[in-house]
């Protein structure tokens, strides 16, 4: 497989990145992630439960960092300072791990990103040696500014986090992809497999999703569907689609040799 996804100097066979939240239990988490074929998994950094049982399994036992590339996120952070602090802790937690997902939110209802705080955090994190994959709005100018700051991948939303509304502005995504010299991944908003395929057909380098899989009636089956959609969409993009025409006087069957 030569068509791999390159991020921060590492090649990945899968272009599907998945979150690890919202699953019923760790068994379902693991089964869904296996079915998705994802190699990069996002995790959140949270306070440890004081007084929890010492032998309770943790996410790291279920998804060993030896098998997956961890992508610690800054979910729930509303300022650059909080996001930077969270990722410094993540780096210590995961033994000098540098690949991170930066997201700074601006509003608790819509979870819309705060791009000014995101830019500020990206600047600090890049300076501190982090490889920053950055979640942002689908604004092409902001996407380019994040690239110029040194982020390793830019991840515009398809629609709002957890909404499952699909790709609402393919034109902006297309502009972002055309202008970018780093991988562009759709992060957030994908609801079903066709959404993922469309993202890939637009030329995205990959898709990051969580709720679309975890909130499906059968998450493991949806994870498999997403894997196929990402692969089909990528192949379709590489194959190059036919030109769209309102109608065509060129049928697929010969116009000669008709009976009668």
């Amino acid at each position: 497989m030569s068509d791999s996804l390159h991020i921060a100097g590492k090649a990945y066979g899968s272009r599907l990145l998945v979150g690890t939240g919202k699953y019923k239990d760790f068994t379902e988490t693991r089964a869904a992630i296996d079915a998705s074929g994802a190699e990069i998994v996002t995790v959140a950094i949270r306070r440890t439960n004081i007084g929890q049982h010492a032998n309770e399994p943790s996410l790291l036992d279920v998804l060993p960092p030896s098998e997956f590339t961890y992508l610690p996120n800054t979910a729930g952070c509303y300022s650059a300072d909080e996001a930077v602090r969270t990722l410094r802790l993540a780096r210590e937690l995961l033994d000098d791990h540098r690949l991170v997902k930066l997201e700074v939110l601006g509003d608790p209802n819509t979870l819309y990103p705060n791009v000014t705080e995101t830019l500020a955090a990206a600047k600090t994190l890049v300076k501190e040696g982090f490889d920053v994959m950055v979640y942002t709005s689908d604004d092409p100018i902001i996407a380019k500014q994040l690239e110029d700051l040194g982020c390793v991948a830019v991840m515009p939303l398809a629609s709002l986090i957890g909404s499952g509304m699909g790709i609402l502005n393919p034109w902006n995504l297309q502009i972002i992809i055309e202008n970018a010299n780093i991988p562009v991944l759709v992060d957030a908003g994908v609801g079903c497999a066709s959404d993922a395929a469309i993202a890939m057909e637009l030329g995205c380098a990959g898709v990051l999703m969580n709720t679309a899989i975890a909130a499906a009636k059968d998450p493991v089956r949806m994870a498999g569907a997403m894997k196929k959609a990402i692969e089909a969409g990528r192949e379709s993009f590489l194959a190059g689609r036919m030109a769209k025409k309102l109608y065509s006087a060129s049928p697929s069957s010969p116009t000669t040799g008709m009976i009668g």
Binding site: G19, Y23, V43, I45, L89, L93, I161
Partner: peptide, 10 residues
């Protein structure tokens, strides 16, 4: 002190 670990998230 803040003591943190990794948990499921998207």
């Amino acid at each position: 002190l803040e003591i943190v670990g990794a948990v499921g998230g998207g």
